[in-house]
Write a protein that binds this DNA or RNA. Structure first.
Lengths: 253, 253
DNA sequence: TACAATTGTGTACCAATTACACCATTTATC
DNA sequence: GATAAATGGTGTAATTGGTACACAATTGTA
């Protein structure tokens, strides 16, 4: 146990040396019918777009904060949300912060601190979302991943890191439960994988592999109404899906 | 651009709501001759041991901070060091913090804040290290992973998460460059893998696989002096090793 | 009724992983 | 020195997993 004097001295020094802020940046991947988009915000004050983000409140777990931020921007709660990297270079938002240095004394300017940002990525069906801008943005919108705007801050790095992580994790994590309807066809699920990976996969090999994971139930019905042969419907076997989330799958695409 | 009034109001609210501290906890795995240890600190004030840690200074990148903390505790610089998870539950160190609440007013007590902790893991040869306690510890020492003491705070969770991450990353990252001498034998390298994975591997299959990665140079010499047949020496092909670090290997053990 | 598009299913081939066997070298021991 | 014990080098067969590819069936439309 420290003495009172030790604690006071350490605290005074430390409060001077080590004050920092934590923010959360979310890369929200939105999927729907073979399209892949990212949720972005057009800044009121600057030319460019950024990722949705926010701050962690006192006494709030960081996962809860990420979920809250996401829910505020999309209206969707409890989606697939995963911490993937911390961005902590002090220069990462210096330019952005220093524009306010003349305006307000440093100690009263929240932005004068360096922010360490915890990156999360989320997977949602973008047709479920209602994009809602925050107080600093004039617009919140889904942007196609193949037609991205200019990013502010280091958000391009954050986006790219998230995409790399997602593609890597596809090798040993099942995905799709949040992104597919209750019942779906094999070609629909394949399109999701192809969209994420950015490449075509062989139809027959995809089916064998995904069925091999044992996370799907084949339903007796087919999806009628298409212009062609009616494909079978599948649903996720939630129990096995959850188990696979914990245990992991194996090997890569 | 925000107006002065907007900035002042936002800052005042935010500074009240969102102040947090960032700490770094390092799980330092030490290896030597088939043994695997973890660097731990015996607390001066409490019954129990904790992982080496510290705070990120203003204007210091977090990777630099982790490296500094590790160098301070071991005397070793620039080792393999990798961020693996952020621990941000506000209750994670509440008990530890509240013991000081009566002693010093909250606003002058550095520990009254919740700490969000960035977990790093490091791989070192423990025979190179000089364990050095910090100001809160009476002892800094290597503890065998099979005979661990009682952990303080949430450090047992951090340790277990680090070990799981290390084992997973073994599948797609080459390791050993920091842990093996310049020249080493295949059985020695195999022992390192077995130590990390906690299980025996087949001698012949291990060799084929590791050679297949193309990160080793077979040297013409053998290691004489052992009690048995002299094994060949190998060294890491640094160029291929670095490439494999970036590109990743494939598949799992 | 023929056709285009799409889905269901199967199979042959190659690569990686696993399991296992045999020989060579070194030192200790009789 | 012959032999045993321990360890290292190398190879091979069986299994599994991944890739490439072919053909039949269904559906709506021309």
């Amino acid at each position: 146990m420290l003495t009172k004097e030790e604690l006071e001295k350490f605290s005074a020094d430390a409060l001077e040396l080590y004050l920092d802020h934590i923010s959360i940046d979310c890369v929200v991947f939105g999927f729907h019918e073979g399209q892949m988009k990212v949720l972005m915000l057009k800044s009121k004050n600057e030319e460019g777009w950024q990722l949705p983000g926010g701050f962690v409140q006192k006494r709030e777990p960081i996962d809860t904060a990420a979920n809250r931020i996401l829910a505020t921007r999309t209206g969707i709660d409890k989606v697939f949300l995963k911490q993937f990297h911390v961005f902590g270079d002090p220069d990462r938002n210096r330019q952005h912060n220093e524009q306010y240095n003349d305006m307000v004394p440093k100690e009263r300017n929240f932005f004068s601190h360096r922010f360490i940002s915890i990156g999360y990525y989320a997977l949602v069906d973008f047709s479920d979302a209602i994009p809602t801008p925050d107080e600093f943005s004039e617009l919140c919108a889904w942007r196609d991943v193949n037609d991205l705007p200019v990013f502010l801050l280091d958000h391009e790095l954050i986006f790219n890191t998230a995409l790399d992580t997602l593609r890597l994790q596809l090798s040993y994590q099942p995905i799709g439960y949040n992104l597919m309807p209750k019942e779906f066809t094999m070609p629909e699920l394949q399109k999701l994988y192809e969209t994420i990976l950015g490449k075509k996969l062989d139809r027959r090999n995809f089916q064998r592999r995904i069925l091999g994971f044992g996370i799907l139930n084949k339903l007796p019905q087919t999806r009628k109404g298409g212009a062609h042969k009616a494909p079978y419907l599948y649903s996720f076997d939630l129990e096995n899906y959850q188990a696979a989330l914990k245990e992991g799958l194996k090997s890569g695409w």
